[in-house]
Write a protein that binds this DNA or RNA. Structure first.
Lengths: 260, 260
DNA sequence: GAGTCCAGGAATTTCCAAAATCCAGGTTTA
DNA sequence: TAAACCTGGATTTTGGAAATTCCTGGACTC
């Protein structure tokens, strides 16, 4: 009998159990948005998206509407949907909120976690570190490492008793992913001198040792480093095509390319 | 030049600037949901809602979808939408999160607030206390006092610099309202011995005195009392028709009643 | 008698075309 | 010249009907 706990993402495998077209389109769009298939500021016209994803306007509209409620797209009046711009200020807003919420959730998770929760963390860490941090596969905008990374952070908080806390953390996680993956838009993938595996291991160790203070502090630092890395990518002029009046510069034609 | 700050609710008057039918339907449904026009657990069939609100299924579906993303309705697969059940556990989840987030936002608001922010708080408090806490008007499910109350709490946090924080607080506020207004479903409106105006005044005074610690603590206590009042209403058996297999007991027919 | 399977009916989801709205460009006017 | 005003085309939004899915009740089998 499993615990009635929602993970960061309910679907465990690739795209299991998308009961409805709107749901499937929502997930595809979400992954493509966080994976920078569309540049910030560009318009997302119904016609092009509908034929790109091979769906009608109704499920597409529902998908966009849901994404707007999570601020992964911007909905303006009767003027359609746009990709939100990026800004360092907003990025730090998101990081600071994640620090506040995820620390709280981790402390709660440590207080409530049982043996099954512990082994889930260990398993997720194992899967994460045994896999190279390869770039995204060309067909899929969400790489295996991204998935494992998400699952590891989800496992840490898996025993948190507050569904609402996890709900908000999930939304912020996707936002954060969007900024984190800005780096991979760059040609050179020179990482900051950072040992992510080690950071994850330290968080895991403190969590399993049931030291909420320490674990929370390590998690907060981990998130801060993530923010710094994203901030570095933000200062680079290349990947941020600050939307001029008409942002249809090359990247818009990519919208029309059918996803096969 | 006004500050670029989103209030708890962007629309200031009754229902100003609902650019689209979907938007207007979303707001009407939201107010009716928090105002207990529909009992917890009942199904919300498209056909009845469509003719009750005099809209087509497309905007209705979008409205319900948005409400589902804020958990004011529950969407299940291809089985339509339901009114979420109530539980004391979830209510305390919401209260505890509000305490965490609103304290943070109030501290930030105090740090950033200017003179215009101060006078907005004073004005909102004045409007709130000069009006009797009358019950909802029969035609409208959101009373004047509710609106003023919402505006006062929004004014307190009006100078908070984090849009995301305010966004989540807004969602939780509607959830909280749903539980708070459970009391008014009861026949007797015997209030707990509680001086709400005084609580509000103390919070305001500490805020304007720029005492973030004290103001935050008072706000946390205020929210705790709100939770206790709702918990009292939850224990009463009457207003919580625990949904049997088919919850079409009288309250369902009220769904069909056109809102005029 | 209990469980499984199958149809009919009801509800939701989706498609598609019509209506409403917005935007760009050109024309007129002060 | 610049601002305001139309007008045509493109885009979004909406209404309603088709398609798909789900639920209920009854018959059939073990």
């Amino acid at each position: 009998m499993k615990r009635a706990i929602t993970r960061l993402e309910s679907e465990s495998p690739g795209d299991a159990a998308a009961k409805t077209i709107a749901e499937a389109t929502y997930r595809r769009l979400r992954d493509d948005l966080t994976g920078w298939r569309y540049a910030p500021g560009v318009k997302l016209p119904f016609k092009e998206l509908a034929e790109a994803y091979r769906v009608g306007v109704s499920p597409l509209r529902e998908a966009l509407s849901r994404l707007a409620s999570e601020r992964l797209v911007l909905a303006s009046g009767q003027r359609g949907f746009r990709v939100p711009p990026v800004s360092a200020d907003e990025m730090w807003e998101i990081i600071k909120l994640r620090q506040l919420l995820e620390r709280e959730a981790l402390v709660d998770s440590i207080a409530h976690g049982d043996a099954a929760w512990e082994s889930e963390i260990v398993a997720a860490f194992h899967r994460l570190t045994r896999q190279p941090a390869g770039a995204s596969a060309p067909g899929d905008s969400l790489s295996d490492w991204d998935r494992r990374h998400r699952d590891f952070h989800g496992a840490l908080l898996g025993a948190c008793s507050s569904q609402w806390l996890l709900h908000f953390i999930g939304i912020l996680y996707h936002q954060s992913e969007r900024y984190r993956r800005l780096r991979f838009q760059r040609a050179d993938k020179s990482a900051l001198p950072r040992d992510v595996d080690r950071e994850h291991r330290e968080i895991m160790d403190a969590t399993l040792a049931r030291k909420p203070r320490l674990a929370g502090e390590l998690l907060v630092r981990h998130l801060a480093r993530t923010g710094e890395a994203a901030a570095a990518a933000l200062t680079d002029p290349f990947p941020v095509p600050t939307p001029a009046k008409r942002p249809l510069n090359g990247s818009k034609t990519r919208v029309t390319r059918a996803k096969r």
